[in-house]
Every structure is written in structure tokens, then in C-alpha cells.
Nucleic acid binder design. Structure first.
Lengths: 195, 195
DNA sequence: GTCTATATCGTGATAGAC
DNA sequence: GTCTATCACGATATAGAC
């Protein structure tokens, strides 16, 4: 609000574009994750869209950041930092195949160290691994989980399983991502197959 | 051996190309999984390479099939159908980043139902999920694992974790894929963090 | 601020010489 | 059987009009 009018307006438009992009990608849509395809979807020309985001990678990274932000605000606000909040995010993912696909696609492209989205994925991985580790430590503190279990290793396992399940699910949408992750959670918390 | 000379020779050359491609991709190499890039690497022109494989997707799918075949012959022959054989394959993967990357890249592209490699990945997923399920059933039969555990669900979890760990590892090569999977195995077989 | 038009590049695939 | 040369396409990015 302290910024100049024109500049602030640009920011607002950027946000609007991201919000629209999220909706439109989520529903399904598009195959190639190209700027033109997304431009059509949000009602701008390709050049018009790149007026707000200076490159393709910046655009798509911004979309994924926005998604994280929205998911966090929606599900963590609702259920707190809990395994249930995490399951709710995953269950939601099953409703937004286009986003899942964009994430999978970009995450593979970004393994190259000099890819513009590399830092985003590294940072995100670390954040999620630590978040899972914290959940596990809480279970350990409550005496529900073996104290010998390495929380960071187990946290990495959750992250990997969540990512891998997305690819499996894209390949075969009858796969139940949440059921798999609940199983993993029950194994970690020393429960068994019962939910 | 019962085939005509010229035809058999073509087959042999195809195999040679695949073997060379495996070596050359494995070591590291190339970024874009393009035909031209691979052609340079195996010492052919792009057109020359496509003389043996009629499309890009056929070529790369053939490479991944060959990889599966070689891995199976190497590690399953050595350790039988066991968790250890599986860990050995994963440990080997950490030596061949280029192949891991090709796999990750193609598996995401192939989620589209009409992609030429779609059937390969669907079939492969099923095969691995079932193989893991069999391992778990054997543990259950031996009384090492909770009989209530759903073997197919747990098998899917292994597959997803293995896939997801590859992306994590590509992003950050200090990740120990085998350690994560051993942890999962120990959780499934009711052991804990001890190997 | 947004458009049309275009420059430039990399891709897979093909034609045709040798 | 393998090459060089080329085509057709789709991509990102940019120039410049309005």
C-alpha cells in the first residue's frame, strides 16, 4: 500500500494472474506447460503474460509457490500442523491433476543446478522434510513412536512417498494416494493397517 | 538365429546401440533427452540413429527396457528376488545419474494416456508393485510381518518411495536412497531403525 | 498495458546422395 | 547403412504499434 500506484497495480495483476492460472491449470487443461497455452487460458496473449513474468520458469515457479501458499492457508489453518492437514492437502491434490502434473514436470526439469526453479525445489524439499520430521518428533515425545527412529530420515521418506505417489497416480488415477500415505504414517507411529 | 542375415544384423546393431547408449547416458552426459544429443554420444548422426529406431519415444523406451533387463540379470541373478537385490539396484542407480534422470523425465511425459511410452510405465509399475507385494507376503508367511498389512498397498508404497527418492536424489545427491528404503523395509517388517 | 508480428532457436522426422 | 541437408513445427522471447 505504500508503493506507487502503477507498481502496486502490477503486483495486483500478477496476483490475479496467478490465482486464475491456479484455477485453470487445476481443472485439468493443458499438456505442455507452455506459456502460450497458459496465456490463452488466462485470457492474455503470450506476450501480454510475459509482460508480468519475465520468463517461463519464473512464471511457473510463481504458480507453484502460490499453490503452496494457498494450500498452507487452507489446510494448515484448518487442521494445524498435523498429519491430517497433510493428508487433506494430498486428498485435494487428487482434485487438481493439472497442478500435480505441472509440479512433477517442473521438479524433474529443475534438477539441473542452474535451472531457475532449482532453488525453489531444494528449499521446498527441505521445508517439507523438516515439517515431517517435526511431526514425528512430536509422536516420539508423546510416546507413540519408537524413540530410535531417525525423524529426518523418516521425514524424507514421507516426502519421497508423496512425490512418487503423484507420478503413480498420474499414470493410474485409481491409485489412492492418501491410503498409501496413511499406511506409511501408521507404520511410523507403530500402528498397523488400521486407520 | 533363424532369421535372415540382414535382418539379424539390424537386430544386433540395435542391441549394440542400446548397450552403448546405456553406458554413455549412465556416466552422466546429457540434459535434454533429445535424439541429437544421444546420437552424438553413441557416434552416429541423428538420422543414422533414427534409422534403427523409428521415433524418439521408441528409442528411449527401448533404452529403459534394456536397463531393466540388465539390472534384473545382474542383481536378481546375484541375490534372488529379495529386498537385498532391490537395494542393490537402487545403490547402483546412485552411480548412473543420467539414467535416473532419463527415467524420471520420460515417466512424467508418459503420464498422458496416448504417449508411446505410457504402456511401458503402466506395465512396469504393476510389475514392481506386485514384486514388492510378493516379498511382503513372504515375510508375512514367515511370521516376520503383521498379517493384517495389505501387501499390494505396501508394495505401492515401496514403488512410490523408490521413484520419489530418485527425484530427491537428483535434486540433492547427498540423499541416501538406500538408507531411506531400508528404513521403510524395517518399518514394514516390524523391525525399527536398526539395519 | 496489451497487442500483433517476428526473430531465433531446438526439436523430430524425412529426402536423397553415396 | 549412414551421411548431409532440409523441412515443418512449436517453443520462448522481443520489437514496436497502439
Amino acid at each position: 500500500m505504500a508503493t506507487r500506484g502503477a507498481y502496486a497495480k502490477g503486483i495486483v495483476k500478477r496476483e490475479q494472474i496467478l490465482t486464475t492460472a491456479l484455477e485453470v491449470i487445476a481443472r485439468n487443461g493443458y499438456r505442455h506447460a507452455s506459456v502460450r497455452e497458459l496465456a490463452d487460458a488466462v485470457g492474455l496473449s503470450q506476450a501480454g503474460l510475459l509482460h508480468y513474468f519475465s520468463s517461463k520458469e519464473e512464471l511457473f515457479t510463481a504458480i507453484l509457490r502460490k499453490r503452496d501458499e494457498v494450500d498452507f492457508a487452507t489446510y494448515v489453518a484448518e487442521a494445524g500442523r498435523s498429519a491430517e492437514a497433510f493428508f487433506a492437502v494430498i486428498a485435494h491434490n487428487a482434485e487438481v491433476p493439472g497442478l500435480v502434473r505441472l509440479y512433477a514436470q517442473l521438479s524433474v526439469e529443475a534438477v539441473e543446478a542452474d535451472h531457475p526453479a532449482h532453488a525453489y525445489f531444494v528449499e521446498r524439499s527441505e521445508r517439507f522434510r523438516n515439517a515431517f520430521a517435526d511431526l514425528i518428533r512430536a509422536e516420539q515425545a508423546a510416546g507413540h513412536t519408537d524413540a530410535e527412529l531417525d525423524p529426518v530420515l523418516a521425514g524424507g521418506l514421507f516426502l519421497a512417498a508423496a512425490d512418487g505417489l503423484q507420478t503413480q497416480w498420474l499414470l493410474d488415477p485409481t491409485i489412492d494416494m492418501v491410503a498409501h500415505l496413511r499406511l506409511l504414517w501408521s507404520l511410523v507411529t507403530s500402528g498397523r493397517t488400521d486407520s
